[in-house]
Design a protein around this nucleic acid. Structure first.
Length: 329
DNA sequence: TTCTTAATAT
DNA sequence: AATATTAAGA
């Protein structure tokens, strides 16, 4: 089983007091073939969670009675569901607060369908694993999902199942032992992981974002090493460089085309997915020298970052979005 | 030491 | 194609 075309439809609970918005988001989710269950208030939502077998929660932040964060707290208390917040509060401080509370993703409103395309990964992440240490072979996690839908382009017959490759070339033998086959799997920068990376950078501030710091803030030592982050950061910077070189932001004219391209890239995707305005990124880039007015940032104090825990293996989890690498153009 | 970059390897 | 690793200078 677990063939491919899955069948696994993720059940997503949407919560928003604004009925219009609720419907809108619902339809966006359905577009990606998610099973949608909606609630107009946290209280109803909590009741629903008990009845249905929800995989992921998407909630508005600003709501009467109980706001999104309080709601998330409740969810986290009894169930361990990943919660995504949608908010029109684009303040950095709010973003940080939400993340610190354990929200897995913070989406800025207005949202667009694409924003939801890959959110199933958060659901997978929280289920798929949690086995604290022992990064042994996460390779087998296997994502049997595959975001169904495939409403559009999405051809992946990728069946790259390489097995092992006994590789020994270590002259030393500081360890040598390997019963569980401590093969070091390559890190797969899934959207979720990349998002974490981006959010860490946003939190730290681009100017101060160095491998070590990012590594610490991301707080997923089971999945990454500082070197992984350094490597990713290097690539990310190259991407930013290219993008800023193009200076397409300035052009208000036919920017739509250019921007469209940017959107396709992985890095951009992660960034823009949450903040649809491409300007955000550049604003940050441009004023990096002055802004720095970073609010108080001390220790992220990541409460529960299990959100990304298991993500890592599986090859095409993300491939769906990434067929365009960072090298746009 | 860590950071950054470039080059090279897997 | 995406990541990792290594080397060298700051």
């Amino acid at each position: 089983m677990a063939g491919q075309i899955s069948t696994v439809r993720f059940k997503i609970l949407v919560v928003d007091d604004d009925s219009t918005c609720l419907k809108l988001v619902s339809s966006m989710l359905k577009k990606w073939n998610y099973e949608v269950i909606s609630a107009s208030c946290p209280v109803d939502a909590l009741a629903t969670v008990q009845l249905r077998d929800i995989d992921l929660v998407v909630t508005d932040l600003h709501m009467p009675k109980m706001n999104g964060l309080e709601f998330q707290k409740e969810i986290d208390k009894e169930y361990k569901l990943p919660v995504i917040i949608m908010s029109s509060n684009h303040k950095e401080a709010m973003l940080m607060k939400a993340l610190a509370c354990g929200v897995v993703f913070y989406m800025k409103k207005p949202v667009i369908p694409e924003d939801f395309k890959n959110i199933w990964q958060y659901a997978v992440a929280s289920k798929t694993a949690k086995p604290s240490r022992n990064i042994g072979r996460i390779e087998s996690i296997q994502v049997e999902n595959n975001s169904g839908s495939s409403v559009n382009k999405g051809k992946h017959g990728n069946k790259k199942d390489c097995k092992r490759k006994a590789h020994e070339k270590k002259k030393d033998d500081t360890e040598g032992e390997n019963s569980t086959a401590p093969k070091k799997p390559k890190v797969v920068w899934t959207d979720a992981l990349h998002n974490r990376f981006l959010q860490a950078i946003r939190y730290i501030t681009l100017e101060k974002a160095v491998p070590k710091k990012i590594y610490e803030v991301m707080n997923v030592p089971e999945l990454l090493t500082r070197d992984n982050v350094a490597s990713h950061l290097q690539k990310y910077r190259i991407f930013l460089e290219r993008v800023s070189e193009k200076g397409f932001v300035a052009t208000t004219n036919k920017n739509s085309i250019t921007i469209g391209r940017i959107f396709r890239s992985n890095f951009a995707a992660g960034l823009f997915k949450t903040s649809q305005d491409p300007y955000t990124l550049f604003k940050g880039l441009e004023k990096q020298t002055s802004a720095t007015a970073t609010p108080s940032f001390q220790s992220f104090n990541p409460t529960n970052f299990r959100s990304i825990d298991g993500l890592s293996s599986n090859n095409f989890a993300l491939s769906s979005t990434s067929r365009f690498g960072f090298g746009l153009m």
